[in-house]
Amino acid sequence: MLESKRIYLRRFEEKDAPLLLKWGQNTRYHDMAGFEQIQNMDQAVKSVHQYMARPESYVICLRDGDKAIGLIELYERGMDEQSGLLKTKEIGFLLDQACEGHGYMTEAVRLILTYAFKKKRQTEVWAGTFADNKKSQKLLQRLGFHYVYTVDYSQVSALFSFKEKYYLLKKEEWLKIDANTKS
Score class of each variant (00 low, 15 high):
Gly101Leu: 07
Phe35His: 08
Leu111Lys: 02
Lys22Gly: 08
His49Ile: 11
Gly128Leu: 10
Tyr104Glu: 03
Thr150Trp: 02
Glu164Tyr: 00
Ala98Phe: 12
Lys163Tyr: 00
Val148Asn: 09
Ile60Asp: 01
Met1Arg: 15
Asp80Lys: 09
Asn40Val: 07
Gly92Lys: 05
Ser83Thr: 11
Val109Ala: 10
Gln141Ala: 12
Lys118Val: 07
Met105Tyr: 05
Glu173Gly: 04
Cys61Gln: 01
Glu90Ile: 03
Lys46His: 15
Arg121Glu: 14
Lys138Cys: 09
Trp126Glu: 08
Leu62Ser: 06
Arg28Pro: 00
Leu20Arg: 02
Ser4Asp: 06
Arg6His: 03
Gln37Asn: 07
Gln137Trp: 07
Lys15Ser: 14
Gly103Met: 07
Glu13Met: 13
Gln43Met: 12
Asp178Trp: 04
Tyr149Thr: 11
Gly92Thr: 13
Tyr166Glu: 05
Asp132Trp: 13
Leu71Asn: 10
Ser83Val: 03
Gly84Ala: 15
Thr106Asp: 09
Ser157Tyr: 09
Arg77His: 09
Leu2Glu: 00
Lys15Trp: 10
Gly128Cys: 07
Leu74Thr: 00
Leu20Met: 10
Ala131Gly: 10
Gln37Phe: 06
Met52Glu: 08
His146Ile: 09
Leu62Trp: 06
Arg77Ala: 06
Gln141Phe: 02
Glu73Trp: 03
Gly84Arg: 11
Gly103Tyr: 09
Lys119Cys: 11
Lys134Leu: 14
Tyr166Ser: 06
Asn180Asp: 15
Thr106Ser: 13
Lys118Trp: 04
Leu175Asn: 01
Lys134Pro: 00
Leu74Gly: 00
Phe162Thr: 04
Gln137Cys: 10
Tyr75Thr: 10
Leu113Val: 01
Ile60Trp: 02
Arg11Cys: 04
Ala116Gln: 11
Met41Ile: 15
Trp23Phe: 03
Phe93Ser: 06
Leu175Lys: 01
Leu20Cys: 07
Thr106Val: 07
Ile72Ala: 07
Gly34Ile: 05
Lys22Pro: 03
Lys67Arg: 15
Glu56Gly: 02
Cys99Glu: 14
Ser57Arg: 09
Ile60Arg: 01
Phe130Ala: 04
Glu56Ser: 11
Ser183Phe: 08
Lys182Cys: 12
Trp126Cys: 06
Phe93Met: 11
Lys5Ile: 11
Arg63Gly: 05
Tyr147Ala: 09
Asp42Lys: 10
Pro18Gly: 15
Met105Leu: 08
Ile91Ala: 01
Tyr51Ile: 04
Asn26Pro: 02
Leu113Ile: 00
Ser47Val: 04
Gly78Pro: 05
Ser83Gln: 05
